[in-house]
Design a binder for these strands. Sequence first.
DNA 1: GGAACCGTTCAAAATAATTGAATGAAGTGG
DNA 2: CCACTTCATTCAATTATTTTGAACGGTTCC
Lengths: 298, 298
Amino acid sequence: MDFKTLKSFEKIVEHGNFARAAEELAYSPSTVTTQIQKLESDLGVLLFERGKKIALTEAGRLFYEQSIPILKNMEQLQKTLGDLASGEAGHVRMGVTEPTASHQFPGLLRRFTEVYPHIRISVEIAGTPVLTDKILKGELDFGLGSFPDSAAQLHFEPLFTEEFLLLVPKDHALAREGSNSVTLGRLRETRLLITAQSCPYRRKLETALREEGSFPPDTMEIGSMSALKHYVAEGLGAALVPRMVLDPLPEGTLALPMEGGGINMTCGLICRSADLPLKRAGKNLYDFLLHEFTRQKG
Amino acid sequence: MDFKTLKSFEKIVEHGNFARAAEELAYSPSTVTTQIQKLESDLGVLLFERGKKIALTEAGRLFYEQSIPILKNMEQLQKTLGDLASGEAGHVRMGVTEPTASHQFPGLLRRFTEVYPHIRISVEIAGTPVLTDKILKGELDFGLGSFPDSAAQLHFEPLFTEEFLLLVPKDHALAREGSNSVTLGRLRETRLLITAQSCPYRRKLETALREEGSFPPDTMEIGSMSALKHYVAEGLGAALVPRMVLDPLPEGTLALPMEGGGINMTCGLICRSADLPLKRAGKNLYDFLLHEFTRQKG
DNA sequence: GGAACCGTTCAAAATAATTGAATGAAGTGG
DNA sequence: CCACTTCATTCAATTATTTTGAACGGTTCC
């Protein structure tokens, strides 16, 4: 028994009429006649009473009541699988590093869910090493973070570059000079608050400052970037933080650009080279993020 | 999409194996391969991961979970309709006259339901005229009663013949004579309790007695046959009642046969000639009753 | 009485299902 | 390491089925 036959049966009952059912389903009239005859012979039961007007038999009524829900269920199932295949639905597991996870990403995700309301998303927030590890193991579909240390088997798609600004308390020595920017060298004069060892921003920063010989003698290590802001506001020292973290600027602080372009760090999408091109729901989120950032740039 | 394909899919998942599924369904191996390939292309989704061992994909798992209940529902529906077609299930509306309805019929119906537990039965109890009327109108499938007055368009199938016995109080004049039977003529000497005008037994009785000139001058009309017994027991008179009503014989009464064979009445199955042969569930009950009575006779 | 509509029939054509034999890939046991 | 088995797949050929158009017979509705 074929679902097409059930569909014909449904339309015949709805229209009370073989001809209109055939028309709606783009069949020739004889086709639906044959379909119903075969159906009746399969079931061993007459479905319609053929008089001047056709009418459901008792068996036909029973069959209608029970078969239409079956048909609807199958149609729903086909749609669900279709969505899954087209990427309209499904499950994407992605990893995001801080501070992106707390700043740009929420808004992006909100806009994405407006376009693809049926895609379920899991966001794991961790440092780049953890993310790349899980991406390689297939536990995450892709990630949003800085350029990974071990790029083997990984594809990196740059999205945006973050400039580091120097966040200082309003009454800090470097702030009072009235200058609008600071040279790297002056950093040695202050205590620098930095994030944990695992933070990719910290590593980027450390590498850059050591190359310049500007790494300050006094540092203090604060676990997270968002917490770090409050230590600066409290006057414990200065910190180099990505621009996105400074919205809103903490009370009693100033953000100064570094002279000569300062330090920049590029974030982007990370996935297994083997997984390119991504498929289904994952591809939709990946492409959405890519598109959003190229649009922003242009 | 065909239910045969779903069935193959089910068996493949159950056996974890194309080959065994093909074997069980008596398909060639290539058939199930083709079926699944078509199914996958229809759904736009791969159902199995083809490695050393086949395994369901995520989509395949989803499809399995949802499609198998659909398949089961359809199989159940087919069985239900099959039962309906074969007469294993369905609804029979029949009419029965008293006193058969209260005596032989309950036991027959019990035995029938043991053979056909899924047939729903409605029993209407009424006089033959009402029954034949409803049978002709199609409101009843068939009836069990006496030969109908208007036999046009009706078929009557005799089942059994009931002898009328004279029920008298133990101390009744006709009982005290020590004789084992009574002639019709003696009936004039007693008050005769008779049932209502509509009762076929009453009409049969009245006709027979008037022909013989034995209709007694004193009668009393009591609505129902089963009530009538108690009036006899109370000493109000004698009554001619079918043998079946006299089990059990009411306290303080005697049942005397009429001399010379007495009065008999034939009961049988009544249905529309146009409906012969009966179909489905109705035929099963009709044939069952027929068979039970011919067996009893032989 | 004639036009329009409907369901059905029939033979032909188009499409789909099924098969057996061959192929290749993977596991098994000596 | 090499037969040996098992298994899914491919391919061409066969078989079954679905679909169609045209014609037919019935009914309804002016």
